[in-house]
């Protein structure tokens, strides 16, 4: 095995992840190879510096409200599901009642049906346009 093949194992060596027989082979190679010894020193130095790297802590309020924000977003999702299921059920019931009401004339039903179909199609068209635009809009990141 040349130095190149050992380079891969050196990472396992400095991370303490090597076991025999690889560990013994690396130790034996290192004992007689100054370039690999230098590599180990450099990698260890890199590891130390990375482990020392610390970021500024955000203000304490961020940590205090962290769970609340996660919790609200979890429960908000559940709330929307319930709302949508309920809204669809109410709308379906209203449409059924209206369509089967003998007191309402067929022409009236047709007109109301046309209005709602028209509104539905307009809504779908607007949503579709927004979805398409959001994929290609170059300025969506700009706050208005």
């Amino acid at each position: 095995m040349g130095c190149e093949e050992f380079e891969l194992l050196l990472n396992g060596y400095i991370d303490g992840e090597l076991k025999d027989p690889d560990l013994k082979r690396v130790e034996k190679h290192l004992a007689g190879c100054p370039p690999c010894q230098k590599l180990v020193r450099d990698y260890q130095r890199l590891k130390e510096v990375t482990a020392e790297m610390k970021f500024k802590n955000p203000p304490q309020e961020i940590w205090d409200s962290y769970w609340q924000r996660v919790f609200h977003r979890i429960t908000r999702g559940v709330g929307w599901v319930f709302f949508l299921v309920g809204a669809v059920a109410v709308a379906g019931f209203a449409v059924y009642e209206f369509a089967t009401d003998p007191a309402v004339e067929a022409l009236q039903k047709l007109i109301v049906f046309a209005i709602f179909v028209g509104l539905g199609l307009l809504l779908i068209s607007v949503i579709w346009e927004r979805v398409k635009a959001s994929k290609t809009d170059k300025y969506k990141e700009i706050e208005r």
């Binding site: 510096v49 990375t50 610390k54 500024k56 802590n57």
Partner: peptide, 13 residues
């Protein structure tokens, strides 16, 4: 500026 310590070695890393 996100780093706690802005030593040159940390900035470079």
């Amino acid at each position: 500026h996100l780093l706690l310590e802005r030593k040159e070695i940390m900035r470079q890393l």
